[in-house]
Simulated scan of single mutants.
Amino acid sequence: MTLTLTSQAFRQNGEIPAQHTCQGADVSPPLEWSGVPPNTKSLALIVDDPDAPDPAAPKITWVHWVLYNIPPTATRLPHGATAQALPGGTLEGINDFRRAAYSGPCPPVGRHRYFHKLYALDTVLPDLKGPNKAALERAMQGHVLTHAELIGTYQKR
């Protein structure tokens, strides 16, 4: 069985609805997954934009959401997931907006791609005290069993 990640809000390579962006309510889209390997101890989620600031000349990957220690029994994150709505034990890292929360697409120019990456890990990570993406990726090294990716796009109107 393969790890898969989907959303009821948008399809693979489809447009992310405005309600999940800075031009709307800026709430997280619902995410669902299946195919978690049986030896998974935790899951991690990173949402980022490799097209910042301009898809014609990208310079950085902008991070929108960092979650880890999601229980392997969890199968979804609800629409508008706040810290209180996350599965028990889930910890949040710091995004590039300097927040421990979801911050949606807000591209300054052009149509950007937003990568929602779910990782199955063979361990429960220690409390990393609000890690950024790089710190989480370092902690995950050697522990990734598999991963799934869902890409959405957005351009300001």
Rank of each mutant, 00 (worst) to 15 (best):
G110D: 10
G152Y: 00
A100C: 06
A101C: 11
L77T: 04
M1A: 10
Q8C: 05
P71I: 07
P105H: 09
E92I: 00
P105N: 13
C22Y: 04
P71D: 06
K117M: 11
D26H: 12
C22G: 15
P58Q: 06
L3C: 12
E92G: 09
P126T: 01
A148W: 03
V47I: 13
T75E: 06
N13Y: 13
L125S: 08
P37R: 08
G88W: 00
L91Q: 15
L121P: 05
T75C: 05
V109T: 15
P30G: 10
R11M: 08
K156L: 07
L3T: 13
S34M: 08
V109E: 08
L91N: 06
N39Q: 14
K133C: 08
I94L: 11
I60L: 11
D96E: 09
N95Y: 01
L128K: 11
Y154R: 03
R98H: 07
C22L: 13
R113W: 05
L86G: 05
V66F: 02
K59H: 05
L77H: 06
Q84Y: 01
V109H: 04
D54C: 11
E32H: 13
Q141T: 12
P37W: 02
D48V: 04
P72R: 07
E92Y: 04
A52P: 00
D51L: 07
L31F: 11
P37M: 03
S7Q: 14
S34V: 05
T90E: 02
P53V: 08
Q12Y: 11
P72D: 07
K133I: 01
T82A: 10
A57W: 03
L43S: 07
Y114S: 12
Y119M: 08
